[in-house]
């Protein structure tokens, strides 16, 4: 592996200074499961790795005081996967955290890494998007908070500046009568990258109609994308099998898939329809509404 420098700041101020001074020649080292391999094969060539695991703000995993959750960008996915309030309030995120790689990977890999690596297939990204999560971004010009959905520029590319870093994710308090679900298709049981992934968050009103719904897709476009046409089909309606099927059909409009070793563009479009229908039905099931 080519050489590089390494620093392990112990405060956010130190980390911001390190990213600022490096001016884009640095990458964050959280779990390392993507960046170390990328350096080894020459895909990324940072001159400096900045270890985020000793920065307290990047390692928080706690209630935000308003019923929501703060998840540091450097917290291992196994802690997210096993966290009682993630499992109870954000099931889509708990599921996705338990799907990334194997146990050894989940013990290292992080939300900051999954988002920062910006793979269109990142399993935790659709759940973060449909849960309306934001990410705190720090840099030499100050700290700001962006919806997770806004930070993706293309495969492997974020909209944040090269001298900025991801600090923590904030997931708002779950609303009443709301649930979420994530499903992906891979050709085997474990240890693969999503051919297509679908996240759904849905809120029902007292009359059983869809009060609000959010759907996001992985692996079907250069970035993870919201399936807005599918959302529009569902909103305000009473859930039926036919409506879930129609949402699936309309989800395809958000896709612009490529053909690659994991599947053809046509296959991804078809999977998007099927998985969206199933995810809507499963999410409804979690809310006590059976579409079978």
């Amino acid at each position: 592996m080519r050489n590089f420098d390494y620093v392990a700041p112990t405060s956010l101020a130190e980390a911001v200074q390190a990213f600022g001074q490096a001016g884009g020649r640095a990458r964050a080292l959280a779990g390392g499961t993507d960046i170390i391999d990328q350096i080894r094969i020459g895909r990324r060539t940072p001159e400096l790795l900045i270890d985020t695991k000793r920065v307290p703000e990047m390692m928080v995993l706690e209630d935000d005081g308003a019923g929501g959750l703060r998840i540091g960008a450097g917290v291992p996915l196994s802690r997210v996967r096993d966290h009682a309030s993630v499992r109870a309030a954000y099931p889509a995120l708990a599921t996705a955290a338990g799907l990334v790689g194997a146990i050894q990977i989940q013990n290292r890999a992080t939300l900051g890494g999954n988002v920062g690596n910006a793979a269109p297939s990142g399993d935790t990204i659709p759940p973060l998007m449909v849960l309306d999560a934001t990410v705190v971004i720090a840099g030499p010009r100050g700290t700001r908070e962006e919806p997770v959905a806004n930070v993706f520029a293309g495969p492997g590319q974020l909209t944040i500046q090269p001298d900025e870093c991801l600090v923590e994710f904030r997931v708002p308090a779950p609303r009443a009568n709301t649930s979420s679900y994530y499903v992906r298709f891979i050709p085997r049981a474990e240890m693969d990258i999503a051919v297509v992934g679908v996240g759904v968050s849905m809120m029902l009103n007292g009359g059983g109609q869809v009060e609000d719904v959010s759907i996001a897709l992985a692996s079907v476009a250069p970035t993870p994308v919201a399936a807005t046409a599918a959302q529009d089909v569902l909103r305000g309606q009473t859930l039926t099998r036919e409506l879930a099927r129609e949402a699936g059909e309309r989800a395809e409009e958000a896709t612009s898939p490529i053909s690659d070793v994991r599947g053809s563009a046509d296959y991804r479009r078809e999977l998007t329809k099927v998985l969206t229908r199933r995810a809507v039905a499963a999410c409804a099931g979690q809310l006590g509404v059976s579409l079978s």
Binding site: G32, I36, D37, R40, G101, I103, Q104, I105, N107, R108
Partner: peptide, 22 residues
């Protein structure tokens, strides 16, 4: 590259792939 697990070790009580850590 973090697929095969032959390099598994335990760090601070959890297993990791030591080929994907520095």
């Amino acid at each position: 590259n973090g697929n095969c697990g032959s390099c598994t070790v335990e760090v601070d009580g959890v297993t990791i792939n030591s080929c994907c850590a520095l």
